[in-house]
Structure formats: C-alpha cells, structure tokens
Computed example of a mutant assay.
Amino acid sequence: MMTARSVSGKVALIAGGAKNLGRLLSTGFAEDGARAVVIHHHNAETKDAAAETAELVRAAGAEALVVDGDLTRPGNVTALFERGIEEFGGIDIAVNTVGRVLRKPIAETTEDEYDLMFDINAKSAFFFIKEAGLKLNDNGSIITVVTSLLAAFTDGYSTYAGGKAPVEHFCRAAAKELAPRGISVSNVAPGPMDTPFFYGQETPERVAFHKSQAMGNQLTQIDDIAPIIKFLATDGWWITGQTLFANGGYTTR
C-alpha cells in the first residue's frame, strides 16, 4: 500500500520556473523541504529573473540549478531533464507552467501565429510529459498548467485554448502508461491569472468582465494555484489523468 507523498528530500523541476507562478512553485517546494529545484527559463530575457529565483530557493534551504532553453525543441526538453539528473541524481516532481496566450479572431490569425501557439502550448507540453515519463523516479508526479478556457464558450482564444486542449489527451494517455510505475499525471486549469501574462491581451472592460465571473470579483491569484499543484504532488497523488478547474467558479464542465 502506498502512503501519502511528501516534498521533503525530493527534487522538483519547474518549466517556466523563473517568475510568476513558476517562481512561487520553485520557492514553495524549497520551503516545504525539497532537496533541490531545477528552474527552467526560456532565454536571455528571463535570465535575471531565473537567477533571482535560484537565490530565493537557496535561501529557503534547497539547492538550485538554472537551465535555459526553448522547449518547443524536443532536444532542449531532453537536455533539461538530463541536466537535472546529472546535477541531483534524479527528479521526482515535474511541473510545466509554460504557455503563450493570443487573443485574436480566427479570420485574422496567420499560419505563423497558429504554428507558434501550438508549438508552445501543445508540442512542448507533449515532449515535457514524454521526457518526464522517461526520466522521473518511480512514484513521481507530472503536472501541467493548462487553462479554464477549455470549458469556455467564447471568442478570440481559438489558438490558445485550442493549443492547450490536446494536453488533456496527453495527460490521460500518460496517466495510463505510467501508472505501473506509480507516476501520477494531471493538469491544473486556472482562471485568468493576475499576472502580466494575462493583461497584454485584454482591455480594461474585459478585465472587469473576467473578474465578475469568479468569486470575490477577482482574477485567479497564483497564491491560490500553487497549493493545488503542491497537493497533486503530495497528498493528492491519487488524482491522475484528470484536469482540475481551479478558478473560483469562472468556468466548469
């Protein structure tokens, strides 16, 4: 019989771990007793943020490794996991917060925009789950951040929600395939989060509308999502192959 899992002494890898939700997870796992955290960031623009997050992780008592790379290239995903294993001997928890949002009518969306959105939101997620499945220690956890728009009937987000939609199928298949090793695979679907990731696509009027759809007339806070992700990696390990809509009532299905 398996017992409840703990972060203590484990190694966590956070894709997009340099800032916003990724930073909160990186530091949170360290504060909860993780032995080490692998902090992924995309490129030179996020280098300083990743270095700051690493210092916060070390200040919380864990080791930290910063790895950069464009995860739409599968070779970079492989290298990310291999670097973590080389440095710390293994990885127990893999969380993917990477995503890109675009709000644009279908009629105005270019082929390049379509390819970019699906590369970031679907392709990189697929190969992250693949590498995590190959590289994680037994009884580990794989968690992907998707979006509550998967349950929305709305305009403008065809390539964002569409790019995230396949991740539900990747999750279910991986959950079945990795179950014999005790690895749980799940998704968390936040509502619109109160981070810079959200505001660039919206007008003040639409921000007000999004707020009005959830409890407390507010956007989703990263402080509300991080504990759910940590729960899935610990006491909630029995939840697998599922998407948790964590959004204050913004959408459901």
Score class of each variant (00 low, 15 high):
Val66Lys: 12
Ala208Val: 13
Arg83His: 14
Leu65Gln: 09
Arg253Asp: 01
Gly33Trp: 04
Phe81Asp: 08
Pro192Cys: 09
Ala125Val: 06
Gln221Trp: 03
Val95Arg: 08
Lys230Tyr: 06
Glu31Met: 12
Ala122Cys: 04
Arg83Tyr: 04
Ile228Ser: 06
Asn20Leu: 02
Leu232Phe: 02
Ala60Asn: 09
Asn96Phe: 02
Gly9Glu: 02
Asp32Trp: 12
Gly9Phe: 08
Asn96Ala: 07
Thr240Gln: 08
Cys171His: 10
Ala152His: 11
Phe153Gly: 00
Ala94Met: 06
Leu232Ala: 06
Tyr250Thr: 02
Glu168Val: 02
Tyr199Trp: 13
Gly69Phe: 01
Gly156Asn: 06
Ala30Met: 12
Leu25Glu: 08
Ser212Tyr: 01
Gly17Thr: 08
Lys104Gln: 14
Asp32Phe: 11
Leu219His: 13
Arg5His: 10
Ala161Arg: 03
Gln201Val: 06
Ser8His: 14
Glu87Met: 09
Ala233Met: 03
Thr46Val: 07
Leu116Val: 12
Thr72Val: 14
Lys211Pro: 00
Pro105Val: 05
Gly163Leu: 04
Leu56Gln: 15
Ala50Glu: 10
Phe209Glu: 15
Val11Trp: 09
Asp70Trp: 01
Leu102Asp: 05
Ala175Leu: 10
Ile129His: 04
Val77Ser: 03
Ala34Met: 11
Pro105Met: 11
Thr220Glu: 14
Asn20Cys: 05
Gly17Glu: 01
Ala18Ile: 12
Asp155Leu: 02
Val67Ile: 14
Lys104Gly: 04
Leu71Gly: 01
Gly22Ala: 03
Ile120His: 04
Thr109Ser: 14
Ala233Thr: 06
Ala49Phe: 05
Thr110Phe: 01
Gly16Val: 04
Ala107Cys: 08
Lys211Asp: 01
Ala49Gln: 14
Lys19Trp: 00
Gly191Ala: 04
Thr97Tyr: 13
His41Ala: 05
Gln218Val: 01
Gly140Gln: 06
Thr159Pro: 00
Lys104Val: 00
Leu150Thr: 04
Ala15Ile: 09
Thr78Ser: 11
Asp223Ser: 15
Ala54Met: 06
Glu82Arg: 11
Leu80Trp: 07
Trp237Asn: 07
Leu13Gly: 08
Asn121Gly: 03
Arg253Gly: 05
Leu149Phe: 11
